[in-house]
């Protein structure tokens, strides 16, 4: 009798734990359903072709235009500025930590670099707007107060730890005997790093880069604070721009009634953002899976 009561209890607990694990799938479903449902309402009113090819984005004006390209160009511009900082710096730092740095230094510096990820992004935004922009204006006098370059650089430094720590893990996974083979041939550490370790850890490093891209695309507050809120179809880093994320922030700050076309625009922008990051996440996932198979 006692035995069967215990069995039932075990079943109930297992079911409860299972439901908790499955709930994470429902979060994804929830995201997809909500974004699809509200965007569907948006695309009933605005033709998809206008949305994808229009170069003017003024949904809050009296004469609304719904071309997403200015927001996409703003997102890509800031992302590329951030990546041109984060990728070289992150990769060089990863090579240094994995191949050159003494053990003690590596163990001390890694937790400290993790703190960079702990700083709230709104504080980074403050820093970009009120510290870096005035500094850059000294160098480039015609830089406007809101611009793409300053939040781009800050965002780049922000994602360096992500890029470097994932790349470093990939390089650490390269077996020692491969390096030893290279040293035995008389190669320097630098030659070994670039000709042997990096090619061997390639998919891991690529996954780190992809992760950095996806993070830069989705970053919100630095851009919302320091890039200005101007949908601007340009690739000039000196001008103010708006990204997909900062547009959503702008609309959410105002008082937009539920169910209107303006309300639905943030879901259309969110859908675009979600698909962009999903694309990169899938590539990154696939690359990481390949590393695990390599050795």
């Amino acid at each position: 009798m006692k035995k069967s009561a215990q069995k039932i209890r075990e079943r109930i607990i297992e079911t409860g734990l299972f439901l908790s694990a499955v709930s994470s799938v429902f979060i994804t479903l929830g995201i997809v359903i909500i974004l699809a449902y509200e965007s569907f309402g948006f695309f009933m009113a605005v033709p998809v072709t206008e949305f994808l090819t229009g170069t003017v984005w003024t949904p809050l004006f009296a004469d609304p235009r719904f071309g997403i390209l200015p927001l996409v160009s703003g997102t890509l511009l800031i992302t590329s500025i951030a990546l041109s900082v984060a990728l070289p710096v992150g990769l060089i730092s990863a090579i240094y930590l994995s191949e050159y740095a003494p053990h003690r230094l590596r163990e001390t510096i890694k937790p400290v670099l993790e703190l960079l990820a702990a700083v709230p992004t709104v504080v980074y935004g403050y820093f970009a707007l009120l510290f870096l922009t005035p500094l850059l204006q000294e160098l480039l006098p015609d830089l406007s107060g809101f611009n793409a370059i300053s939040p781009g650089i800050i965002m780049g430094v922000m994602i360096v730890p992500y890029v470097s720590s994932v790349s470093e893990d990939a390089m650490k996974a390269v077996p020692m005997y491969i390096r030893e083979g290279s040293y035995a041939m008389g190669a320097t550490k630098l030659q070994t790093a670039f000709k042997v370790v990096i090619p061997a850890a390639f998919s891991g490093i690529a996954a780190a880069f992809i992760m950095g891209i996806s993070r830069a695309i989705g970053e919100t507050m630095v851009v919302a604070i320091a890039a200005g809120m101007m949908p601007n179809f340009t690739f000039n880093p000196m001008e103010p721009v708006q990204t997909l994320t900062s547009y959503i922030v702008q609309v959410s700050l105002g008082d937009v009634p539920h169910g209107t076309i303006e309300y639905k625009t943030i879901f259309a922008a969110g859908m675009t953002l979600f698909l962009m990051t999903l694309f990169f996440n899938i590539i990154g996932f696939w690359l990481r899976k390949r590393i695990r198979e390599a050795y």
Partner: peptide, 23 residues
């Protein structure tokens, strides 16, 4: 479930905001 959790970790935070707004 595992792929899904890995993917959720990469979804931008503002998307969670939109989910919460709608749901």
């Amino acid at each position: 479930i595992e792929i899904n959790i890995a993917n959720l970790a990469g979804v931008p935070s503002i998307i969670y905001g939109l989910l919460a707004l709608g749901m």
